[in-house]
Write a protein that binds this DNA or RNA. Structure first.
Lengths: 192, 192, 192, 192
DNA sequence: GCTTAAACGAGACGGTACGTCATGTCTTAAG
DNA sequence: CTTAAGACATGACGTACCGTCTCGTTTAAGC
């Protein structure tokens, strides 16, 4: 029951040229250069062609980086919980600070704050959480805990993200790992 | 030895009108409406007057919200560490989710990601950290720990900020408080 | 071997709207209203569209009036030299004082005095001289003289132009005609 | 019965500085630089001071050049009519083409075409006519004619002014002189 | 092989914000 | 009461990007 497409098929080369162009522009001239017109010109593509397949620069950025992001955040299981968490945090730090896809992610997270459409888009893409959940699923059992929840994701990822967003640098990941594992290993409240 | 200013003095009413205008515009028409032209028109002020005192919309936003932010994040000491931390986290959540100044902060944090000048500006203003440090200075002694460091600030603030930025909602603050205090109360590494 | 133009073709309606607008503005609100912005708004045309095809208001004015000017200054041969010259001078007076295109010409001649680019433009368009030369070519043979020179053009046209530019009125054209023909009919120097 | 002036008297040095500034600006950066603000800054004078004594740049220009113009166009009587007229035309050409005051005059004449206020101002100042009339009053009697009329002024001055305004150069003054004197020496109509 | 139909590049279109500049008015303190 | 300084509201300047439109030209699929 699939409708057979009629007319000239979509050009794969144009699609790739656009995604490449947005990546290059972001790296070379910064976000100010990421413009529908700029992307089209850089890609050697008609403006209408860009608008035909994407509505906003955010959509293009997302498509350009989301696959790379998944790859770069893929962790391998480690023999003990500490090394597992620490390994993930180091991967996350590298992603946010030095990766091309990480730069895209930060820019998109920024755009999210003043554009509801982008918020929906980025939320659906869910870039960081899956990798964090994978790590937590491995670590949880070894702490006799179930750690696969939004709160745990936020605790694991939040401090690094916050530090990178505000100061442009990452915190002491070893100490962070210790605090996290200590906090998770006993569930009771701690008073003064 | 102060140089006596010469010429017509700066108009305080124009300054206030601009700060009010940027606030109103952000709330009413969103960030897209926060435009140098839009601000000037809304404030009933010449465009040149805006440019004379501020270079970018980010600078105006910052000046418009920074004082409010400090006030809204001022905490009162609590009798025990748990209530102190929990109180601060609730204040932070309210600030980020429902406050006018918090909206400004999120927008500025977003802009920070693709504009180096804004990054410098926002970093210097240092909006969240002071309040977090005040909380940590009170809690630390009760845990026989020194908690006044960048890492602790990131651990305290990061999860909430991350959750708000990505999902638009806050995590379970009570559980977060317990995890934080547990993580901080014993400094040694925790293995599997 | 002509290169086929690519892309959307120029809009003839926009072109006409601009030329009409500049004409209307000059007549209705005076030269102060002849503004790139004003023209664009009046023509219901984007500002960029005006700049795409004309660089200055002077260019638009010139294009708006040059064709009309040629038409309005077209003379018909007269049976004798006196009537021919007088007819031309009356046409010239009417053109300068009452015609729409003549108003354009005077404004352009004014602009010429403090703008080198306009000078070049107006000089190339050569609005008055052709009609004057046509008259002189007809009159010359009847005076057994060759009158088709820059000096003769200046003598024919200059007094009227000068009077209109300075006083806003024209001199006695009949007497002027007599003086001109008398001056031209004998070539020798006249002493006191 | 003279009213004694009260308060600080007008500064003569400020007046001279303004007139000098407008002259310099016209010569150095062209008419585009002749601006109320530019004049004030160049003269080292408050903007309000300029507005207090002059309403427009045209008024300042006029005051700056009118006295010089009169001086530069002052002729000395010559023994015969031809030398008298030719001398005057040469003076006029030099004034229009090479004199500072002549540049002012041309600019003002230009402004006149699209500004009624300037027209009135320049007409009242009557810069060229007096010198032309002086020449005509000397020449007339030697031709047994009365030549002191607006038409004669236009015939004498118009061709040179027209040539300078349109082409930026002057015509053959000797031939022009001959034609003028021939045209004036017999008053009757000349037919083909 | 011809027709149909959609995608393609190019680029003009009407808008609008940008940051700069000159306008003419005003508000100071100094003389 | 004039002066220099300079802030003020206004509005045109020329540039850039927006998203839409109108061209002539591919590029397949289906008749």
């Amino acid at each position: 029951m699939s409708t057979t497409p009629v007319g000239r098929p979509r050009s794969e080369s144009a699609r790739r040229a656009v995604l490449q162009a947005v990546d290059d522009l972001l790296a070379e001239v910064g976000y100010a250069g990421v413009t529908m017109k700029g992307i089209a010109d850089r890609a050697g593509v008609g403006r209408q062609t860009v608008y035909r397949w994407w509505s906003t620069t955010a959509e293009i950025l997302l498509e350009a980086c989301v696959a790379d992001a998944r790859d770069e955040l893929r962790t391998v299981p480690q023999p003990d919980a500490r090394r597992d968490v620490l390994g993930y945090l180091r991967l996350l730090e590298a992603f946010l600070l030095h990766s091309h896809a990480g730069l895209c992610y930060r820019v998109l997270l920024g755009e999210t704050q003043h554009d509801g459409a982008v918020r929906e888009l980025v939320a659906r893409a869910d870039i960081l959480a899956p990798s964090a959940r994978a790590c937590l699923r491995r670590v949880g059992p070894r702490l006799q805990q179930d750690l696969d929840h939004d709160l745990h994701v936020a605790e694991l990822v939040g401090p690094v993200v916050y530090a990178v967003l505000t100061t442009g640098g990452a915190p002491d990941l070893e100490a962070l790992t210790d605090h996290l594992l200590a906090g998770w290993s006993r569930g009771g409240p701690a008073g003064a």
